[in-house]
Design a protein around this nucleic acid. Sequence first.
DNA 1: TAGATTGTTAATCGATTAACAATC
DNA 2: TAGATTGTTAATCGATTAACAATC
Lengths: 228, 228
Amino acid sequence: MANPEMIGGSLTATRDGDIAAAAADRLSLGVAARMSRYLQVLTQAKKMGKETISSQELSDYTHVNSTQIRRDLSGFGKFGKRGVGYNVEALVSQIRKILRTAGQHNIVLIGAGHLGQAIASSDIFADHGFKVVAILDADASKIGASIGAQIIRHVDELSAVVEDEEIVVGVLAVPGAAAQALADQLVGAGVKIIFNYSDALLGVPPDVTVHTSSPAVDLLYALYFYLT
Amino acid sequence: MANPEMIGGSLTATRDGDIAAAAADRLSLGVAARMSRYLQVLTQAKKMGKETISSQELSDYTHVNSTQIRRDLSGFGKFGKRGVGYNVEALVSQIRKILRTAGQHNIVLIGAGHLGQAIASSDIFADHGFKVVAILDADASKIGASIGAQIIRHVDELSAVVEDEEIVVGVLAVPGAAAQALADQLVGAGVKIIFNYSDALLGVPPDVTVHTSSPAVDLLYALYFYLT
DNA sequence: TAGATTGTTAATCGATTAACAATC
DNA sequence: TAGATTGTTAATCGATTAACAATC
C-alpha cells in the first residue's frame, strides 16, 4: 500500500516569479497547520474589532509558543512592529496569501439532519471563504425544504452539482453506516477533499484527502493532561 | 536534570521541575496526540469486527509513519505479534491505560439547538467513555423536552449539576455571542476542560483548557495541500 | 518452511525553545 | 526616554527514515 505522504517526483514548476521563488516550495505540514490556526484567531479578533495583536496574545489562544509564532511569520516577511505587535487585518491577508486560500471555495454538504442544519446555518465555514452551494440528502421527505438560502436536494444530483459548481470539498454529515457509500459517490463525482463528521473509517483513493472530525479524541487528549 | 527524588509534602514545592518529577512518565504532547488518534481508528476498527491491525494499516488511516507507530507503542510494551500485527481489542485497552482515560467521564452539554441535538444523539462521545449526563439551555421554551435519555434543563442548574455529577468537561454548543458568558459560568462551577463549538475566542483562567472546534481551519489546511 | 510484520538501532532532518539585541 | 515586542541566534529536543534481525 502506498504511503499517502510519498513524494512522487513531481516538482511543481516555479509559478510567479521572484516572490514565489523565494517562498518557493510548499510549507511543511507543521507550518501550514499552525498558520491555519493563527488565521482562525485573527479572523475572530478582526470580527471583535481588534486592530493589533501580539505574538503573546496569539500564543494564549493557540497554545503555540510565542517565539515560534514570530519565527513562522518572519519567514515570510517583517509583518510586525516592535513594541506594538501585528496589524490584525494585514496579517489575515498575508496568511491567506501564504496559504494560497484567499479565494472563495464552493462546498457541498451531504446530510440535512441536525448536524447538517447546524453546519448550514452557522458561519464557521463562510468566515473562511467556504460557501455551501448545495445541501443534499437521501431522505425523500426532506427534499425541497429550505435551510438558510439553500433548498435540500436529492443525493442523486451530486455529480451534476459537483461539476456545475466546480466543487473540490465535500462535507459528510451523515450516520456512520451511510458514510462510505456517500464517500464513494463524492470520489466518483471528482471531489478531492472529504470532511467526515461520522465516525466511519473511510477508504478512498490516494489522491483524495479525508479529514475526520473527532471531538472525543480531542477531549481524551485534553483530559490526559488534566489528569496527569 | 536534578535528582528526581521528591521532597515530601512542602506546600511551596510547586515549581515545574517538581511537577515533572512527580508525573515522571507523563507523555510528550506529540505522543499523547498520536496515541489518541490510534485509539480513534482502533475503536472504529473494533466496531467493524476487525481483529488485528498492522502498523501499516494504522498508518494509512492516521497518516503517521508506520515506523513511528511501532516505536510509540513499543515504548510501553510488546503489544504486537510479528508477521500478524496488533490485536485490536487488546491494543484499545492498552492505549486507554497509557492515556489513563480508561474510565467513564461525565460531561455537561450546553445548548440544545441543532448542534446540541446532533451531539446528544450521536455516540461519538459515548464510544470513548464520555457520558452526557445533562443538557442545559437558556431558552425557557425548550426546558423539559427530551433528547435521547436526557431532559433539557435550565442553565441555572449548571453549578448544581457539575457538583452532583463530578463533571470536569463542559461542551459549549451555543452561538458565539453567548459563549463567553457560559464559559464563565462553567469555570465558576469548577469545570476544567471546555470544548467550544462556537467561533468565539474564550478567555479562561490558566488552569482551564479550552479546545475550540474549527472545521473551516482544518479545511483550509487540507485545501493548501491540494492546491500546492 | 516462506512470507509478513514487529521491535529496535542509528543517523539525519526539522521543530521547538530560551535568550536577547534591535527598535518601535 | 521607558517599556514593550519583534526578529534572530544558538542549543536542544523530537520526528522521521532506512535498515534489518527476530519471530510469528
